[in-house]
Write a protein that binds this DNA or RNA. Structure first.
Lengths: 126, 126
DNA sequence: ATAATACTGAACCATATGGTGCAGTATTTA
DNA sequence: TAAATACTGCACCATATGGTTCAGTATTAT
C-alpha cells in the first residue's frame, strides 16, 4: 500500500498542475458534465478534453460512466486527503525551520547587545 | 497579480508532482544542503539535481545562494498557502456535492418507504 | 603549482504532455 | 431510413521532462 503512495501523489499533483484540469474539477464540483459540455466550456476538441478527463480519472479524482452515447463525468471518491496531509506536514516543517532561524537571529541580536553593553561599560570606565 | 495565480499553481503543483523534488523539500525542511549533498542523497548526477532545484526555485519553493564554489539550497518563502487554499475550496465543493447526492439518495429512500407503506396498507385492506 | 572539488552549460536521449485532425462506431433524432 | 450527435482510437506535432555525459570554469586544499 505504502509503496503506491508516492505514485498516487505524483499522479494527483500532476493532475492538478494544469489549469484546464483544475477548471474541470471546479465545474464538476458544481454539476456533472459530459465530455462535450466540458470541451465546449474550455474551447477544446472532444479528443483533447477526453485526454484531460482520462488523466483526472487515472488520478482517481473523477469517475465517468457512459450511458447511451454520452459519457458523464462526476467527482471521484478521492478528497485529496493525502495531498493535503503532505502539504500540512511540509508546512509544519517549514514553520519549525523558520522558527529556528528566528531563534538564531534573535540569539545573534542578543549577543550583539551584550557585546555592546560591555563595550559601553568599558568606554565609560576610560 | 491574479492573472499569475494560475501560472503559480501550475508551477508549484508541477514541482510537487515528482517524488525526488518532494524529497528535496523534506530534506531542506530538516537542514540546508548543497547540490552535492542532494545529488548524493538521491543518487543522481549533479546536473540532474541542479535541474530539480531549478524547478523548485522557479516555483518559489526553494532559494539558493552560491558562496565560493558551493551553492546552498534552503526552503523559500512560499508556504503553499495558495495551493492549500485551492485544495480546501475544492474539498468544500466536494463535500457540498456529496451531501447533495446524499440528500437525493435519502429522498429516494424516503419515497420508497412511503410507497411501500402505502402498498402495505393497500395489501392489508384487500 | 597541482590536484581535487563543486558547480555549470551544452548537447543528447527517451518518454510524456497537451494539443490537433481524421476516420470510424454507436446512439438518437427527425 | 437518413442525418445528426457523442464519443473513441489512431496518427501526428511541438514542446516539456527527467535523466545522462562531457567539457568547461572557479574555488579550495595539499
Amino acid at each position: 500500500m505504502v509503496q503506491y503512495l508516492h505514485a498516487r501523489l505524483d499522479a494527483s499533483f500532476a493532475a492538478l498542475s494544469d489549469v484546464t484540469r483544475r477548471g474541470v474539477l471546479e465545474h464538476l464540483g458544481r454539476a456533472d458534465a459530459s465530455i462535450t459540455d466540458l470541451a465546449d466550456e474550455f474551447r477544446m476538441t472532444l479528443t483533447g478534453m477526453k485526454k484531460h478527463v482520462s488523466v483526472l480519472e487515472q488520478a482517481g479524482l473523477v469517475v465517468t460512466e457512459k450511458v447511451g452515447r454520452v459519457r458523464t463525468c462526476k467527482l471521484g471518491a478521492r478528497r485529496l486527503e493525502e495531498e493535503t496531509a503532505w502539504i500540512e506536514r511540509y508546512r509544519m516543517q517549514w514553520d519549525e525551520r523558520f522558527d529556528e532561524l528566528d531563534r538564531v537571529v534573535a540569539e545573534r541580536v542578543a549577543d550583539e547587545l551584550k557585546r555592546k553593553k560591555k563595550n559601553d561599560a568599558y568606554q565609560k570606565r576610560k
